[in-house]
Nucleic acid binder design. Sequence first.
DNA 1: CACCAGGGTGGTT
DNA 2: AACCACCATGGT
Length: 217
Amino acid sequence: MFAAVFERLLAHYGLQQWWPADNQLEIMVGAVLVQRTVWRNAANAIARLKASGDLRTDRISALPSQRLEELIRPAGFFKVKAKRLQALCRLVAAAGGIAELERLPTQELRNTLLGVHGVGAETADAILGYAFKRPVFVVDAYARRLFGRLAYPCAVPTDDELKAGCERELKTVWRLNELHALVIAHGKASCGRVPACSRCSLASACGFARHALPASA
DNA sequence: CACCAGGGTGGTT
DNA sequence: AACCACCATGGT
């Protein structure tokens, strides 16, 4: 079922090609900056960090918080995010660098990331999928809404069910990463806040009928 | 003018 | 465990 949704979304919206970045740290920083924020604003903040030569773990860790706040201001929530970026960069330093984190198995790495202040499940999975190329699905509000509707009239899947189901069916990094991007593209392009699945564009614009989740998902 | 975007935390019930 | 307010800029 998840694979079928993926195929439909890919055919309808095309390849999304996330995540634009020069290196792994840029993706990790972007994952924090984009929290509850449009990508354009987060990208602006990243550009400012690059322009000042501060897009490095050692620089971000050592920067006076007020200076860092000013640099990332366009991303919004700048005081909160400045703390989160420093917590993340200090974890990388404590671990001995990104190359050392790379050695950890996915579950351990996920738990390590979740231990950082300001990194929750969604941000951790985005970092795992896009920066570390691990086969994980990023469950976000759009995914909950879309798959929750497609599950109707069955019970809406939990985050764990959604994540496990997608990972089991799609398996590869590029497909799971694409699915996340496609789900967001779809959420923005259509659907809105229509409560009933009958008007979800997977049923109309994408030529999709209502789907039930497998009982043991 | 109101509303929202590629969340997470801390406090309250 | 389930809410809730809060964080803040920039575009529609």
